[in-house]
Design a protein around this nucleic acid. Structure first.
Length: 557
RNA sequence: GCGUUCGUAGCUCAGCCUGGAUAGAGCAUCAGGUUCCUAACCUGGGGGUCGUAGGUUCAAAUCCUAUCGAGCGCACCA
């Protein structure tokens, strides 16, 4: 459509003896935010500058040269230095709605992946406690990205990396936590961590346990395994409660044997050295990290020879890379530098690194100050508690309205939306009270809009399928325009691997629908058939959006 | 100190990549709307030096530079 406009303007400019390239015209044509200014606008600033006239007059002159109104438009006006084009929307509206209704849950999807396998690693929480809201941001973003990739015809495979070789688990082993249930783990961990922090002797015992683990001492291995299993099961269960599932749990301990090979290979690059304390480290002076840290090294082993996390991570990542054409990992902002270091280490071994998505922390809002969630201090909102409170709130609301509907779906929608709507590299300031408010820019608002639309469809008894299209109401036009944005938004969310774009779009879409709902009666109206199809198209697009966020829709609520 | 991300209404955010027409929402606040398809909704009011200062440009919340403030990171945690 922009091409049509560009040709039109070029011709008019030609008649005014102004020479302009079609491409230059095309580049500046924009879509006004305010519908009063039409569907497309051509600002005259640049051309006026070139022709040394003022943009105001130029707009008028150009408009004057367009004598015949092309069929695509209902009007062409000038407004100051802008020439505004008003589209003939009726025909294109019906085409769009029909397309949505025909493609259904595939509307907006494209075959970009061509069934390639995409491996996504997300969540990967330390298996030592019940996850808090901050940790869950990783899982929720990751899960949404999995869905976006599937929508673009990739074959996603979801991996959870279980850090079962760690001081954290060793501390729990030391505290005999292998006999504990999942719910008791957090308290035990906090307690033990405090003790170990104060005592060098206890810390030595922790290291000894790790040493025994690397030596594959049967008793030690069994204790680590017991605790890890309890924790992973507990975590997976609560995540399954909010419908986040994994295809594979990859245990870090499995990669212990490969670390010897990795060290041998790194040795060949001559970048691996031993420091005075006997630790092996990678010299990273010639790499991108050189100006980002005090001493550009990546330490791979402790002085007692046991491996550190980065060493096993190299082994694990290389293994992951073999499994899929595309590799993606979701990491917190605290891992930015570390990931660059890992990337450089992989480069030495002639491997690419996965694509990485970083997200910022979730801070807890309390008494005017924003605090970081710290598991050890108990300043946390656990996902389990958040979910329970949200469910009881949803139950209460449903009881009040006597409408029915699944309170858990509403609770999960509220939780996911509250953690997805913000831009990823922006810190989330989390307040439980705000998150439990189901009005305004929230998950339940979106679900409510869908339920309302569904209610219309349920109650309608259309007398005729005849689409009568009179002049569109403003709210109808706005709704259709928003629906037509969907494909572009999804593409952008895919290109940037950024679900918040979809979250924001969903909210705007729902908002416009609610305005339409108030101003345009559907049932028994003259345009009943058309409006019913519009409502159905809205339901489909909102459902598709919310599916990509991992949020279920409800027919009633 | 170095690197990095963020700074927009009382609070929480969108807009910034790709510069354009009076800077948008939600919460809170005030005033309205339900014999009518779900009021978890809608309409209206008040509330903004877009951190600050320069620069580029016909045009800057948007691009560049500096500066202030906050988060995160910078060697045996993962």
């Amino acid at each position: 459509m922009k091409e049509v406009i560009a040709k039109l303007i070029k011709k008019a400019l030609g008649e005014l003896d102004i020479d302009a390239k079609e491409q230059d015209i095309l580049n500046v044509i924009e879509t006004p935010k305010n519908p009063d200014f039409g569907d497309f606008a051509f600002p005259c600033f640049a051309i006026a500058n070139q022709a040394k006239t003022n943009p105001h007059d130029l707009a008028l002159e150009v408009r004057g040269k367009i004598r015949q109104l092309p069929a695509e438009f209902t009007d062409i006006q000038t407004s100051g230095p802008y020439i505004n084009f008003f589209l003939n929307r009726n025909q294109t509206s019906i085409e769009l709605i029909n397309k949505i209704l025909a493609k259904k849950e595939r509307f907006g999807s494209q075959d970009i992946g061509k069934k390639q396998k995409a491996l996504i690693e997300h969540t990967s929480i330390n298996p030592n406690a019940s996850p808090h809201v901050g940790r869950v941001r990783n899982a929720i973003i990751g899960d949404s990205i999995v869905k976006i990739l599937a929508f673009m015809n990739f074959k996603p495979e979801v991996h959870y990396y279980v850090n079962d070789v760690s001081k954290q688990i060793a501390m729990l082993v030391l505290a005999n936590a292998d006999k504990l249930k999942f719910d008791a783990m957090l308290k035990k961990y906090v307690e033990t961590a405090k003790k170990v922090e104060k005592s060098k002797k206890l810390e030595q015992e922790v290291f000894l346990l790790l040493n025994n683990l690397e030596k594959n001492d049967k008793k030690t291995v069994a204790k680590f395994k017991k605790i890890t299993n309890t924790c992973v099961k507990g975590q997976a269960k609560i995540l399954a409660d909010i419908n986040i599932k994994y295809d594979f749990f990859d245990y870090e301990s499995k990669y212990l044997v490969k670390t010897k090979e990795i060290l041998a290979e790194l040795q060949k690059t001559k970048k691996l050295h031993k420091d005075k304390q006997g630790r092996l480290y990678l010299d990273q002076r010639g790499t991108v990290v050189k100006n980002k840290m005090k001493s550009p090294v990546l330490v791979l082993t402790r002085s007692d020879g046991t491996g550190l996390y980065p060493l096993r991570d190299i082994a694990y990542t290389i293994d992951k890379l073999k499994k899929a054409q595309r590799n993606i990992i979701i990491l917190g902002e605290d891992q930015k530098l570390y990931f660059l270091q890992l990337k450089e280490a992989l480069k030495l071994l002639k491997h690419e690194a996965p694509e990485v998505i970083h997200y910022s922390f979730v801070l807890l809002k309390s008494k005017g100050k924003n605090k970081k969630m710290a598991t050890r201090k108990g300043d946390v909102v656990l996902l389990a508690d958040f979910l329970n409170e949200a469910i009881s709130k949803a139950k209460k609301e449903i009881a009040k309205r006597k409408t029915g509907g699944d309170p858990k779906k509403i609770a999960v929608g509220a939780i996911k939306y509250s953690l997805l709507k913000n831009n990823q590299n922006k810190v989330i300031v989390f307040s439980l009270d705000d998150a439990l408010n189901f009005e305004g820019d929230t998950g339940p608002y979106l679900q409510y809009s869908y339920a309302r639309a569904s209610s219309i469809i349920r109650k309608a008894k259309p007398k005729s399928n005849q689409i009568i299209l009179k002049e569109l109401h403003d709210k109808e036009t706005a709704l259709i325009k928003k629906l037509s944005d969907f494909q572009q938004i999804i593409l952008s969310a895919y290109n940037n691997l950024n679900p918040s774009l979809i979250a924001n779009y969903s909210y705007q879409l729902a908002q416009i629908f609610n305005e339409f709902y108030h101003e345009c009666p559907v049932i028994d109206s003259e345009q009943e058939a058309f409006r019913l199809s519009l409502v159905n198209a809205f339901r489909q697009v909102l459902k598709n959006s919310l599916n990509l966020l991992g949020i279920d829709v409800l027919e009633k609520m």
